[in-house]
Design a protein around this nucleic acid. Structure first.
Lengths: 139, 139
DNA sequence: TTGCTCCTCACGTCACGTGAGGTGGC
DNA sequence: TTGCTCCTCACGTCACGTGAGGTGGC
């Protein structure tokens, strides 16, 4: 697989793939031309990387986790004990991140729901908001 | 309220508060000394800002949303119709973000669960991981 | 030769962190 | 005067985005 096809199939940018390599998360072979050559397994690896990044893990931590995910005949590999503690912390962080997202969702829902009855006061406040924004640009 | 107390009570850094002001999200008064003077209402505003940032909204969008949250006697204010469409998109993004977090959580859970029976293969792979990391540092 | 894909710099972005160096109030 | 809090630059960080300028294969 060349970088363009992997990017398409994994749903990421080529820049992201080069960045992951720079951080040691991927190690593609090189052709004589210098082109990167990826394996089919890299598609799943990239998906895992994205999932962990989206969960707030840094590339350094992900670099430690990835070898544990190397499936040995469909079997997960045991991580070093230091890493397990890190993962427990990260899992807690994910749980509170979900709660934050839910409360933000409620905030937006309340505002969206309030858009049912516009009224004349709305237009005025809308306009006030724009003027405040202009003021900011001037200042 | 001076910046230090607001930072403590809202649970954010002073740098973050200055940044929010720079982005037009807060507009504290100034004392003769140049010190920022915040209102009690700013505590809740900062909490809302954090919730929306955590949900992935940018400061520009939050600047549009905040006036809608100005409680007019406990009542939410209606946003401009352009904004409502943006909020609907953001809400969808939050929903998929939650799904991503859940799947990442499952990934970590599987690895954590695998740490039950260490065995000798683990230590070897652990060591291999460290060597690979060293190789990276050398290269 | 044309066109598509790839390559390596290298600077920009967003929401801050982190000093550097200086001032205000009790 | 001491000590704590505040101020304004201004550069660093993380995970990339976005060109700039050049090369490879059919």
């Amino acid at each position: 697989l060349r970088i363009g096809e992997l990017a398409r199939r994994a749903g990421v940018s080529q820049r992201a793939l080069r960045y992951y390599e720079e951080q040691g998360l991927l190690r593609p072979n090189r052709r004589l031309s210098g082109y990167r050559e990826y394996s089919e397994a890299d598609i799943d690896t990239v998906r895992d990387i994205r999932a962990l990044l989206a969960a707030g893990l840094g590339t350094a931590t992900i670099a430690e986790v990835l070898p544990c995910m190397a499936k040995d005949g469909g079997q997960l590999v045991t991580p070093c004990s230091d890493l397990v503690e890190v993962l427990l912390d990260e899992r807690d962080r994910i749980d509170s991140a979900v709660e934050e997202l839910m409360s933000a969702r409620e905030l937006l829902d309340a505002i969206i729901a309030a858009s049912g009855s516009p009224g004349p006061a709305t237009a005025a406040l809308c306009e006030a908001g724009r003027q405040a924004e202009d003021g900011r640009l001037v200042a």
